[in-house]
Design a binder for these strands. Structure first.
Length: 212
DNA sequence: TGCCAGGCCGGGT
DNA sequence: ACCCGGCATGGC
């Protein structure tokens, strides 16, 4: 059995199923993916609640706000001026290309869609792949800071690989399976929060500790 | 109290 | 092709 699959099994045994993404609809997931950029999820939830409370958590709803209004609603998520523009860019794309409907976007092929998402201002590889995997259920592996840190601290990989290099490692080692990729990335985040924060030294309670 | 959080962009080497 | 500073709130 390959190493990445073993790691998955260890994390799953330790933490169980994560049932991601914590969001109700594909649109909400996409919005959350932008808002959670370098930001604690708890703060994102507050921002999303504000949007819901205002009844604007829909493509038409957000599209109808000014950038300034949007920024004030998403303030708890931090970087609110930046993220308001990024959400606006995403909504322009969603409205223009898919008439505001995530299900229209979902019909497009992964290899066609990913480059389009990456052209949107404020959508980088992790945000694009989060939308593809969690909102649109496309089989693509999401790499984040926790994934890189956990693998490098345990000596599985070097720490300086690019996003594409890390992603390729997963794609080459694991079957293309939406459910597997969904749970695996969520488990990395869970394990990272628990055992592998930026400055915290490696914890002997980490389920991967014996892989050093 | 600082440190940290599920990045990305733009300008400079 | 990298490297770095900027962006900002809230919880522990």
């Amino acid at each position: 059995m390959n190493e990445l699959l073993m790691i998955y099994k260890k994390l799953y045994r330790c933490f169980g199923p994560q049932n991601w993404w914590p969001g109700d609809t594909p649109f909400e997931i996409a919005v959350g993916a932008v808002l959670t950029q370098n930001t604690n999820w708890g703060n994102v939830e507050k921002a999303i609640q504000n949007l819901k409370k205002q009844g604007v958590l829909s493509s038409g709803g957000i599209h109808g706000l000014s950038v300034k209004e949007l920024a004030s609603l998403i303030k708890p998520a931090g970087y609110f001026n930046v993220k308001a523009k990024r959400l606006r860019s995403f909504l322009d794309f969603l409205m223009n290309e898919y008439r505001g409907r995530m299900e229209n976007m979902a019909r497009e092929d992964l290899t066609q869609l990913r480059p389009k998402l990456l052209r949107i201002h404020g959508i980088g590889p992790e945000t694009a792949d989060s939308i593809l995997l969690y909102a649109l259920e496309k089989p693509i592996f999401v790499i984040d800071a926790y994934t890189k840190r956990i693998l490098s601290r345990h000596g599985i990989t070097a720490s300086d690989g690019s996003y594409a290099e890390f992603q390729e490692l997963f794609h080459a080692s694991l079957k293309r399976d939406v459910h597997l990729y969904n749970e695996y990335h969520a488990l990395f985040v869970r394990a990272g929060k628990t055992f592998c924060r930026r400055t915290k030294p490696l914890c002997e309670k980490c389920p991967l500790h014996d892989m050093l």
